[in-house]
Design a protein around this nucleic acid. Structure first.
Length: 749
DNA sequence: GTTTAGTGTCATTAT
DNA sequence: AGATAATGACACTAA
């Protein structure tokens, strides 16, 4: 069974998802309280519309209620402003939120219990784990505790849930261990990832994680055997009683301990259906194997206590954090406690309110357990949904940044149905919003660097002014230009092809625009484009983040965000005109990035002319941008035309070659026929000569002497008589007849 | 180091 | 008149 019970409040909404599993005597009830982050309503209408992401940070506290483990909001309050609960009449946001999909923070409470002779898992352990998860989430400061308590926790909107736990469960059961160790686990995992990433050995990373996974599985098996022995010793009624009591305790939040191994055992015995399908409502079946795998992979992010078996407690907050962190939009950045939270979340809302962005998709992605299971071991983010769907995924991705690439991930997301009905038109903005989110995020982070680096837009203009060597390399660029270009290139590196590159906000922002496809371009981007500071700032991002991208996997496959025509072509094609540090972007793409062209190359090139012109007119674009877009379109079309031309030329050449072969064969045939005719003619001549000789040998003149064939010739008359006449007469007569024939033929002509 | 195939781009012309 | 297609010429890169 599945329950989707949305509940909204000002500053946030609580989505209660209950998953009840009952398979083969095993019951698992997952209560997922997903806290949907919302800004104050005023942001929808006023500040956000201005595109100023940082003018009103009042929404921040409500964004990250679970700051203890899921997010910090202090950096979102540069002015120390607190949200004003009375800023908007209660209920207004409710109506707006009903039409919006918003980021969420998983707020978990997992109920699980075992009944009867559970083949695998210690009920106590499982219970403890789930309870711990609930308590952990509670102690993390989340707004709302469960489906029941959540509706009581959020009212007021501006109330900071971190300061005031809103349910008895949180107050009473807040376990010290999960809440204390979960962030530590994340931190440790993050450190490990950093080390591995610094070593630059993804394979080693995989080995480590596989090692962890295998060790955990062994531990799970060992624990399973012990648990089976324990259960076997207990009478059935006692087991039921224990189960019920566990359930009660868990529902009450009094039991917070839980064993990961137990849960693994539970999950391992389940069917092979997909949790993802279950969550999305397309299939009521449930793939606990997926969750098992998820948990196994998550183990590397857990503290060592989970690995060495000294502590088997496990918080599903970790799990949901994992899920949240692995989703493909910047919502992860919001959800993660360690993530620098941008002041530009209002951009998200702004965009959501006025442009068509699919936020629900983003939310859906956040709860895509299956995907998270596959890709989340390192709390890394994937940035290219196309790559995700079309290319083999990296089982373990380095944790490079908390930023993500919303541009490429979200627009392609086609996951809906998880959330309650949301205004469809308002679901389509997440990517661009998150782009702005990233921009603002790193704007704050890199503000110092901006001051010191003092970027000059002219540096980027060099990118357009560099000698138009077809290679597109900045060979003649100045040092600064090279720096910028290289930075840009490095930022872009792996963006398209590598799912592990998550550090470049500018790139992330542009990646979707350049090479990605947007059904609807985002005007919000143009706000930044109009300002030099934004342009400046983005360059700074590229520069500041320069170092963060060199450890990216160089061999990352090209993304399909490169829906450009040469996506599937050879490496030679792709690598052409590219810098050594930027093997994935063409010159036009880099230029488009530099100017933040909000359209993909594919769009620009292949869009019908009417749509293209309307697109240019509908969006505020600078002259430089328009010029570049038109150049890109011209070059793109010319490139296709050149390809077609060469193909045609090649076809013509091939056809000509075929014609030559055919003609040669025909010539040989004619030669042979000619030879045969010559041979036949010679034979006929020889026979005629022999006949002539034979006739003259038998002829005699009046005196009985043989007739000389050299002096006389045979002449046939029309009446059939044969005359022997001198050759001279034959020659003269032949000439006359020949002349007559010519005259006749001339007359006919 | 040279050659060659493949490619992108520009300029020009044709449609 | 503008957009697009076609094509020759050139430059560049990788093999």
């Amino acid at each position: 069974m599945k329950y989707l019970k949305p509940w909204w409040s000002e500053g946030g909404g609580l989505l209660h998802l209950t998953i009840l599993l009952s398979l083969a005597g095993l019951h698992l009830d997952l209560d997922l309280d997903l806290y949907l982050v919302l800004p104050p309503p005023t942001l929808f209408r006023d500040e956000l519309l201005l595109g100023d992401c940082q003018t009103n940070p009042a929404y921040a506290p409500s964004l990250f209620p679970a700051a203890g483990g899921w997010g910090r909001t202090d950096h979102l309050h540069p002015k120390g402003r607190e949200p004003d609960p009375a800023a908007e009449p209660e209920g207004q946001l409710f109506r707006e939120v009903r039409t919006l999909g918003v980021p969420f923070i998983p707020r978990t409470r997992v109920d699980a219990w075992l009944v009867h002779s559970v083949a695998a898992g210690d009920a106590d352990g499982a219970h403890g784990l789930l309870g711990a998860a609930a308590a952990s989430a509670s102690s993390a400061g989340g707004v709302g505790t469960s489906a029941d308590s959540g509706s009581q926790a959020a009212p007021g909107g501006g109330e900071d849930p971190r300061a005031a736990p809103s349910s008895p469960l949180e107050e009473e059961e807040a376990p010290t261990e999960p809440t204390a160790q979960v962030p530590d686990a994340r931190g440790r995992a993050s450190e490990d990832n950093e080390v591995l990433r610094a070593m630059g050995h993804s394979s080693q990373q995989e080995e480590n994680e596989q090692r962890v996974s295998s060790a955990q599985k062994e531990k799970s098996l060992h624990q399973k055997n012990e648990d089976e022995n324990k259960i076997a010793d207990k009478p059935e009624w006692e087991a039921e009683k224990t189960t019920e009591s566990r359930e009660e305790r868990h529902l009450n939040g009094t039991d917070t301990s839980f064993s990961l191994e137990d849960l693994l055992q539970l999950l391992s015995s389940q069917s092979e259906n997909s949790l993802e399908r279950y969550l999305y409502g397309t299939d009521t079946s449930f793939s606990l194997e997926d969750l098992l795998q998820l948990l196994s992979s998550q183990s590397k992010n857990l503290p060592e206590r989970h690995l060495n078996g000294t502590d088997t407690s496990f918080s599903l907050e970790d799990l949901l954090q994992l899920l949240s962190s692995q989703s493909e939009n910047s919502l992860e950045g919001i959800s993660l406690g360690d993530s620098p939270l941008p002041g530009g979340i209002n951009d998200v809302m702004n965009s959501s309110a006025h442009y068509h962005v699919n936020i629900s998709q983003a939310i859906s992605h956040d709860v895509n357990l299956h995907e998270a299971m596959l890709l989340c071991p390192n709390n890394t983010f994937r940035r290219d949904p196309v790559e995700r769907t079309s290319q083999p995924r990296e089982p373990f991705l380095p944790l490079n940044s908390h930023t993500i690439n919303p541009e490429q991930t979200l627009p392609r997301a086609n996951l809906t149905g998880f959330l309650p009905p949301v205004d469809h038109q308002l679901r389509n903005l997440t990517s661009q919003d998150l782009y702005d989110l990233n921009i603002n995020m790193f704007d704050e982070i890199n503000s110092v660097s901006l001051a010191t680096e003092s970027f000059d837009p002219l540096e980027v203009s060099h990118l357009f002014e560099q000698p138009d060597s077809d290679s597109g390399l900045s060979l003649n660029s100045s040092h600064n230009s090279i720096s910028v270009i290289k930075s840009n290139s490095s930022v872009c590196e792996g963006a398209i092809g590598s799912s592990s590159d998550l550090e470049s906000p500018s790139h992330c922002a542009l990646e979707g625009a350049v090479g990605g496809y947007y059904p609807e371009p985002r005007k919000i981007c143009q706000v930044d484009l109009r300002s030099d500071s934004g342009f400046h700032r983005d360059l700074a991002f590229q520069h500041v983040l320069h170092d963060h991208t060199y450890h990216l996997q160089p061999s990352a496959p090209e993304s399909t965000s490169e829906s450009f025509s040469w996506t599937g072509k050879s490496h030679k094609i792709r690598s052409r005109y590219l810098d050594d540090t930027d093997r994935h972007l063409s010159r036009d793409e880099r230029r488009a990035e530099a100017l933040h062209i909000p359209f993909s190359i594919d769009e620009i090139v292949h869009m019908p002319v009417d749509s293209f012109n309307s697109m240019l007119s509908r969006h505020y674009l600078t002259d430089l941008q328009v010029s570049l877009i038109r150049d890109i379109r011209r070059r793109g079309k010319n490139k296709v035309a050149a390809q077609n031309c060469r193909k045609r030329k090649l076809d013509i050449i091939l056809n000509l070659e075929d014609d030559v072969c055919n003609l040669k064969a025909k010539k040989e045939t004619l030669k042979s026929e000619r030879a045969q005719c010559k041979r036949a003619i010679n034979i006929m001549k020889q026979k005629l000569h022999d006949l002539y000789r034979d006739i003259f040998s038998r002829l005699r003149d009046d005196e009985g002497r043989p007739v000389n064939p050299n002096e006389y010739a045979l002449q046939f008359s029309h009446d059939g008589s044969v005359w022997i006449i001198p050759k001279e007469l034959v020659t003269s007569r032949h000439k006359k007849e020949t002349q007559k024939g010519k005259r006749k033929s001339e007359r006919r002509n």
